[in-house]
Every structure is written in structure tokens, then in C-alpha cells.
Simulated scan of single mutants.
Amino acid sequence: MIEFKVDGDYIPMIQLLKAAGLVQTGGEAQIAVQYGEVSYNGTIDYRKRLKVKAGDLVEFRGTTVKVI
């Protein structure tokens, strides 16, 4: 599990995937979200600009990111 500290109130899903090192580019992150490869708090979510906040869990290709 990766713990990711968010600066501010939230981070958009695409930026989180890139900042956590789970994808190389924003384009790759957009495609992953579009094809349902990302789980947000246990549910597949297709929103690219989803506001991920402290306490949320994001799972991508077997890696979980806990936002703190």
C-alpha cells in the first residue's frame, strides 16, 4: 500500500495516478480510468476529474493508494 499525502483539499484522480508513480503520463491515466481499471473506495469509477480526498482509497492494477 502506498500512502500519498495530498496538499490542499483534494487531488484529481488523473493527477493522483501520475503523482503516485502508477502511470507514466496523464494520457495513460485517462485511458486507465476510461476503461474501468481504477477502483475508488471499492467501486470502479470512470470519472477522470474525480476529487480524491484524504481518507479515500484508490486501487489500480493491484496497488492500493491511501490518501492522507
Rank of each mutant, 00 (worst) to 15 (best):
R49C: 02
Q15G: 10
F60W: 00
I44R: 12
M1I: 10
A19T: 08
Q24M: 09
R49Q: 08
F4V: 07
E37P: 09
E3Q: 12
V23T: 06
G21R: 02
I2D: 07
E37V: 08
D56I: 05
V38T: 07
I44Q: 06
R47K: 14
E37T: 06
S39R: 10
M1Q: 13
V58L: 06
G26S: 00
D56K: 02
R49N: 10
D7M: 11
K5L: 09
G21D: 05
E28L: 02
I11L: 15
A54L: 07
A54I: 09
V58M: 05
L22V: 01
V38L: 04
I11W: 07
L57C: 12
F4R: 06
Y10K: 07
L16W: 05
K5A: 11
T64P: 05
R49V: 01
Y46Q: 09
D7A: 13
L50P: 03
K51F: 05
A29F: 01
Y10H: 12
N41G: 06
V23Y: 02
I44K: 14
G26I: 04
G26T: 00
Y35W: 14
I68E: 15
M13D: 03
T63K: 14
V58D: 02
L17G: 12
I11V: 15
K53P: 02
T64C: 08
Q24I: 14
L17A: 06
E28S: 07
D9N: 11
Y46R: 11
Y35Q: 15
G8L: 04
R61S: 11
V52Q: 05
G27V: 00
D45R: 12
V6R: 05
V58T: 01
D45W: 09
A32E: 01
V52I: 10
A54T: 13
F60G: 08
L22W: 04
D7F: 11
L50V: 02
V52N: 06
I11Q: 04
G26H: 03
V23R: 02
I31D: 12
V38W: 07
Q24W: 06
I2M: 13
V58G: 01
M13F: 01
T25A: 01
F4P: 09
G36W: 01
V67E: 02
G27P: 08
Q34N: 13
T64Q: 11
K48G: 00
D7Y: 10
G62E: 00
G36N: 08
K5N: 14
A54S: 15
V58I: 14
K51V: 01
R61A: 08
L57N: 13
K51H: 09
K51S: 10
E37Q: 15
F4K: 02
E59G: 04
V58E: 04
K18R: 15
V23M: 03
T63Q: 13
